[in-house]
């Protein structure tokens, strides 16, 4: 654990995680199956509360960003999405990218939640995987067949957090890595330009 903290990348991650942590941190005990299930149930119920609040879209999107930061391991997700290009990035660039990524994901997926109004999420199974637990859930929407949403949960950030999601087998992180790679190519590899555009995208 100590050597992890001294590792440059993880140090940055921990610093960013600490910086963006909200008022109610989850208990930092070892991750259990029950803990992982609770995490997913909490994410779902928090999202449903926001949808039911009837706030304006921009206010809801801000709330979704808070939920994302609270329950997801944003720094590791951001670095994975940036992929090999994260290696040559400075610490400041990585920090800014993480912040931009967090807003981009919240806006992009937050807008989609409208289509899930009235949906029902049932946690079906939990299974140990290398980094933590896999939680499988079934989402039922009006008028269409139920579909599979899988969360991957880990405590490697020091807190129980989800770090990836699969919707009917589609890997969110991998999809975003492809998208961000394409965005970076379009900007001829200019990471600063990407960061400033990403803060507005989604």
């Amino acid at each position: 654990m100590l050597s992890d903290l001294l590792n440059r990348r993880n140090f940055v991650a921990s610093a960013v995680a600490g910086f963006s942590m909200t008022a109610l941190p989850l208990p930092a005990l070892a991750l259990t199956e029950a803990g992982a299930r609770t995490l997913v149930n909490n994410v779902v119920s928090d999202i449903n509360k926001v949808i039911a609040s009837g706030k304006s879209e921009s206010a809801m999107l801000r709330d979704f960003e808070k939920i994302f930061v609270r329950y997801a391991d944003v720094p590791i997700m951001a670095r994975y999405a940036l992929g090999a290009d994260a290696r040559s990035a400075s610490q400041a660039q990585l920090r800014n990218f993480t912040k931009a990524f967090q807003g981009y994901i919240s806006r992009k997926y937050g807008r989609r939640f409208r289509e899930f109004i009235g949906g029902e999420v049932t946690v079906r199974s939990a299974r140990k995987i290398k980094a933590g637990y896999e939680i499988k859930s079934l989402v039922k929407l009006q008028g269409s067949a139920p579909f599979d949403v899988t969360f991957l949960v880990s405590d490697k950030s020091g807190k129980d957090k989800f770090y990836n999601m699969f919707i009917e087998g589609v890997n969110l992180l991998l999809t975003e890595r492809t998208e961000i790679g394409a965005m970076l190519d379009r900007r001829k590899g200019d990471l600063n330009k990407l960061i400033s555009d990403l803060s507005k995208a989604g």
Binding site: A86, A131, G169
Partner: peptide
């Protein structure tokens, strides 16, 4: 991804292989 998921069906062990672990090396391509 979606098609491979459908065809994998209930073969859960086959599907475990799909979980790249970003904690091991988030920079890998």
């Amino acid at each position: 991804q979606n098609r491979r998921f459908e065809l994998a069906g209930d073969d859960e062990d086959a599907y475990l292989g799909l979980y790249a672990d970003p904690y091991s090396d988030p920079y890998s391509d």
